[in-house]
Amino acid sequence: MASGIDELRQQYRKMLEIRRFEEEAARAYAMGKIGGFLHLYIGQEAIAVGTASALIKGDYVFQTYRDHGIAIALGMTANAGMAELFGKDTGCSRGLGGSMHFFDPDNGFYGGWGIVGGHVALAAGAAFKSKYSNDGHVTVCFFGEGATNIGGFHEGLSLAGLWKLPIVFICENNQYAMGTPMSRTTPLEDLTLKAQGYGMHGDRFEGHDVAVVKDRVKMAVDRARRGEGPTFIEIQTYRFRGHSMSDPAKYRSRQELEERKKKDPCAVARQRLADAGVKEAELLAIEGEIDDLIAACVKHADEAPPATEAAMWDSVYVPTSAVPADRLPRGVVRVQDGGAEDGDA
């Protein structure tokens, strides 16, 4: 891992990749190339990239449906991400998951989950596996501040705290649970107070500086790796777009948004690089490379083959040992009229 300015240069590149990826996704969505829900990560890039910098190969990461940023930060290619959004066979989930269900287990990314709070216990399960098999790995679980009010969050934290699992819970507090500000959902300002009840460490800071994010998350990750139990981190952040593409975000003022944009994580990192003596020409070169990368991923997604019916049927169940092949026309009930069996693409 590079250190100092080299590391920041890499982090800036990654944050910019996420930013441009999301901007192109928004454009493609407006053109009708992407369907369903699309939750953009614009404004929160330093958290994903800083956290990814604090992890080692083999660590596990779980995220909500606002998942493009962390997937890319962990190493998913823009091609695999954009193709997934376009519903293509070369997508990270073969076009079956879409925006909310990115998966990339080779890079430690275990989804992409759509039910608020539902993945918190799953992440604790990955940490349970690490403790059970003593594999030395740590799990990071992201969620929004909106999730801290639902049962799944509390049961996941409760068990992780009880069993001192090697996990770091990262609450990306972007201030709004869809359209509802935290002041109307939670009787606390400091969310780490919730985690105290589960016997875990807490930390709380602003998340626009990627170096700060990395350092603080790494403290928690190291603690978990040493077997000293979980940490709950509340990172204050802000999404520059609405909750999803259908949300014009009228519940917040233009002034508030403009104020927050002064802490744009990409701009902050760029300024830091410039201050450290990185020449404007070099920054422009990085930005040009990212522009090319993103243009290429859109081209790839446009041209990739569509999702297949074969993948659809074959992924309901992974190859099975319990069910003999002759009992498994496509997975389920033995339909004999052929209706379900005409699916091969």
């Binding site: 799953l122 399960g125 990955a126 059970y132």
Partner: peptide, 26 residues
């Protein structure tokens, strides 16, 4: 106790833990 694990009364929690553990190799 490593392999026979008593839980608190938290079905959603330990069902989820099981699923996460299954996803990662147990």
């Amino acid at each position: 106790e490593q392999r026979v694990v008593d839980t608190p009364i938290a079905e959603a929690g330990f069902a989820g833990i099981g699923i996460g553990a299954a996803m990662t190799g147990l």
